[in-house]
Design a protein around this nucleic acid. Structure first.
Lengths: 213, 213
DNA sequence: CAGCATCCGCTTTGATACTG
DNA sequence: CAGTATCAAAGCGGATGCTG
């Protein structure tokens, strides 16, 4: 492991998680739970396979992840976050919150994976009416359908809801824009976003930053 | 600027601050305030001068820092954090807190700069008796004397206090060990740390992690 | 197919020397 | 003081091959 060689907590932390791809690997394990090698590759478009293998080795050595044989039905190993790895959540939150405004200027060709919706759900959105009954919003974008569960908190999970109070379908850029409050629903619809349901359900979602102001 | 090309707030943030040395440059500006090029080099032992110049260019382009001509007496430019740059403080705090336990296994040859004491002061220490009158602790380690001001919060600043309630002198490893609560004062003294004053003043300093527990 | 290891060309980094 | 220039070494990305 390359080190800055500084007696400083920030530098020591960066020695472990500062290399290219490392925090994105942790992101995958944090939002998806235990993953196979192949799942990680899918969630990290562009990573070289030798680099993934190397980073996993380093992270295991550093005590951030653990490699475990999966229970019988699955014939493969799974990579888990350790306790120490889960403690990186505040780091994800801080960088993700700081980086969120940069999504506004993202390029159209940027890769997207549906499960990444869990990050804005957890870190950038709050329920504007926690006193009301929980609602679910179905989201169709990217590689798989996702469900947003809004009830006090906002959570994202893969799958299809039995009953959805609203359904969003379209480009991830438009959907995130609306969820972040950067884009007006009407404007997004004009650009191709489809929404079914009562627009009121979308107003349950409040950007955390706006709540602070 | 190299990009992961992912439509994800974490990845977008890392596009800007994820490269080698970048966050350490921000650390310097955060704990020292506006710095000259040479000040930055001193606070970043091991950085290649061309890399520092390149990173500063990138950070300026990204709106994180600003280059300004210093007021008349100084015949040089100063690098400042912008508002956007100051908003990286939660990122520093998160990584610094996560990395703090790693200092326990640091190598003896690790570089140290006295002003780095500001990080544990701000992020890892609290005043255990905020109801009592403020105290100051003089610290002699590294390249310059530092003062710890304990009164509700804990702050570190360079300089020598007129009246110090306690004076710590010795290796930075021992001093940080005591401040973090990893090392017993008596044990540190046995290893060469010198302390003058009432040991009670040191007990005002409480590791933030312990306070949480 | 899952989970790597190897090889190769390119880019980034680190060390040093040099300049206005 | 504040960089630029140069070059070797290390790291990265992409392709491919190997093993259960």
């Amino acid at each position: 492991m390359r080190s800055y060689g500084e007696y400083c907590a920030l530098a020591k932390g960066l020695d472990v998680i500062g290399e290219r791809w490392t925090l994105l690997i942790v992101r995958e394990l944090l939002v998806r739970g235990p993953c196979r090698y192949t799942d990680l590759r899918f969630g990290l478009p562009g990573i070289a396979t030798n680099l993934l293998a190397e980073r996993l080795r380093e992270l295991e050595l550093a005590g951030v992840i653990r490699r475990e044989a999966a229970p019988p039905p699955v014939a493969t190993a799974l990579f888990h976050l350790t306790k120490r790895g889960e403690e990186l959540e505040p780091v994800m939150r801080a960088i993700g919150s700081w980086g969120a405004p940069l999504l506004a200027e993202a390029r159209d060709e940027d890769e997207f994976r549906s499960h990444w919706l869990a990050l804005p759900a957890n870190y950038s959105l709050v329920d504007g009416r926690p006193d009301l009954a929980p609602i679910t919003i179905q989201v169709h974008t990217g590689d798989q359908p996702m469900v947003l569960e809004v009830g006090g908190t906002v959570r994202a999970r893969p799958g299809v809801a039995e009953h959805a109070d609203g359904v969003l379908t379209g480009q991830h850029k438009l959907i995130l824009g609306v969820l972040q409050g950067r884009l007006d629903l009407r404007q997004a619809q004009a650009e191709g976003l489809q929404f079914e349901g009562d627009p009121e359900v979308l107003s349950r979602l409040r950007p955390l930053s706006a709540a602070v102001v």
